[in-house]
C-alpha cells in the first residue's frame, strides 16, 4: 500500500490528461453553445471549422519556422494563432453572409439550418483536405516537458513519475485566460450584454434597438477565435488530422448538451464531465489500484472498464443519461 505513489500515478495518467482534454472540449463546446444560443441552430460544421483554423495556424507555423522565428520553450504555433483566428473569422463571416443569412431572413425551422450546416461541413472538409491533405500533421515544437517523469522521480524519490507536457500546461493556462476573457466580455461589455439579451429573448432585444446583424457578426468572430484556439491546443497536445477533428464533433456536442445548450457555464462543466468520464472509463486502473490497495487485494487483470476504442461510447452514454433524466442539461439550457 502506497497512497502517495497511487496519487501520483492517478494524476499522471488520468487527472492531467483529462484536465487538458476537458479544457479543449470546453472551448469547442463554448462555440457550439454560442451558435446555438444566438444563431439558434446546431452547427454540424463545427469540427471542420476547427480543422480549418488549425490548418491555417499550421501553415503559418511552418512559415515562421522556415524564417527561424520561434518562441523558445513555447510552441511557435502560439505566434500563428492570431492569423488562424483572422482567417477563420473571414471564412465564417463569409459563409454567414453567403449561406446562412438567406435562411435567417426567411425564419426557417432550425432543422433546415442544420441541413445547411451539413453542406457547409462538406465544403470546409473539401477545402482543408485540398489545402493540407487528409494526413496527420505534427506541428508542436519548443520544450516538450514542463516536468519530465525522470526529473520528477529524481526530485521526489518516488517510484512513480509525474510528467507534465508543455502542451498540457499551456492548454489549461490558455483555456482559463480565454474563458475569463469571454465571460468578462459577455457580462461586462455593452456588446456582450446585447448578445445575452438577444439570446434570451430575440423580440425584446430587437425592440430595445439591438442590431441583430452586429450581434451575429460578433458571435461568429468569437466562435472563430474559440474553435481555432481549441483546435490548435488539441493539435499540439495530440496531433492534427481532419477526420479526427470531424469526429470531435460528438464529444463537443455531448459536452454542450450535457451542460445545457445555450449556457456557456454549462459548456465548460460539460467539457470536463465528458473528458473525465472518457479518460476514467478507458484507463487501465491496475497500476493505481496496485499502489492503493493492500497486496492481498491487488487486481490480476488490467481493470480497464472499456477499451480506448470505445471512448465515443462513453460520451454518448453520458449524453443519453443526462438527456433522459435532465433534458435541458445539468445547467439550465434553452430549448428552441
Amino acid at each position: 500500500m502506497d497512497l502517495l505513489n497511487a496519487i501520483i500515478a492517478l494524476s499522471n495518467f488520468v487527472l492531467i490528461p483529462a484536465v487538458a482534454y476537458g479544457s479543449q472540449l470546453a472551448l469547442g463546446a463554448l462555440g457550439v453553445t454560442l451558435i446555438y444560443g444566438i444563431l439558434r441552430f446546431s452547427n454540424f460544421a463545427h469540427g471542420d471549422t476547427m480543422a480549418f483554423g488549425t490548418m491555417v495556424v499550421i501553415i503559418f507555423t511552418w512559415l515562421f519556422q522556415s524564417w527561424g522565428i520561434s518562441l523558445g520553450p513555447l510552441p511557435t504555433a502560439l505566434l500563428a494563432v492570431p492569423f488562424g483566428i483572422a482567417a477563420t473569422a473571414v471564412l465564417v463571416l463569409g459563409t454567414d453572409r453567403v449561406v446562412y443569412r438567406f435562411y435567417r431572413k426567411q425564419k426557417v425551422k432550425p432543422v433546415i439550418l442544420v441541413m445547411v450546416s451539413l453542406g457547409v461541413m462538406f465544403v470546409y472538409n473539401g477545402i482543408t483536405r485540398i489545402i493540407l491533405g487528409p494526413d496527420d500533421q505534427r506541428f508542436a515544437d519548443g520544450e516538450r516537458f514542463l516536468i519530465s517523469a525522470r526529473d520528477f522521480k529524481a526530485m521526489t524519490g518516488l517510484s512513480e513519475g509525474l510528467a507534465i507536457r508543455t502542451t498540457q500546461a499551456l492548454t489549461v493556462v490558455v483555456a482559463i485566460l480565454v474563458v475569463a476573457l469571454l465571460f468578462w466580455f459577455l457580462n461586462r461589455t455593452r456588446t456582450g450584454k446585447s448578445m445575452r439579451a438577444y439570446s434570451d429573448n430575440e423580440d425584446l432585444a430587437l425592440l430595445s434597438g439591438i442590431n441583430p446583424e452586429k450581434v451575429e457578426r460578433v458571435t461568429w468572430v468569437i466562435v472563430a477565435a474559440l474553435v481555432t484556439i481549441a483546435g490548435v491546443l488539441y493539435g499540439l497536445d495530440k496531433s492534427y488530422k481532419p477526420f479526427t477533428y470531424f469526429q470531435l464533433l460528438l464529444p463537443i456536442f455531448a459536452a454542450a448538451i450535457v451542460g445545457g445548450l445555450g449556457n456557456p457555464l454549462g459548456a465548460i462543466a460539460g467539457g470536463f464531465v465528458i473528458a473525465f468520464s472518457e479518460v476514467g472509463i478507458t484507463y487501465a486502473w491496475k497500476k493505481v489500484l496496485n499502489y492503493a490497495l493492500p497486496d492481498s487485494l491487488a487486481p490480476d487483470g488490467l481493470v480497464q472498464l472499456m477499451s480506448t476504442d470505445y471512448k465515443f461510447a462513453v460520451s454518448f452514454v453520458i449524453l443519453v443519461i443526462v438527456l433522459l433524466f435532465k433534458p435541458t442539461g445539468l445547467f439550465k439550457g434553452k430549448a428552441v
Binding site: F41, S42, F44, P110, V111, V114, Q247, L249, L250, F253, A254, I257, S307, D309, Y310, F312, A313, S315, F316, L319, V320, L323, P327, A335
Partner: peptide, 26 residues
C-alpha cells in the same frame, strides 16, 4: 432517443453510428 428534439436525435444517431462501427472494428 426518439422522445428528444430533432437536433438531439441527430447527435444521438450520429453517436450510435460511431459506436456500431467501433464495435465492428474491435
Amino acid at each position: 432517443a426518439l422522445g428528444l428534439r430533432s437536433d438531439y436525435l441527430a447527435i444521438a444517431t450520429l453517436g450510435i453510428a460511431e459506436i456500431i462501427i467501433a464495435v465492428m472494428k474491435n
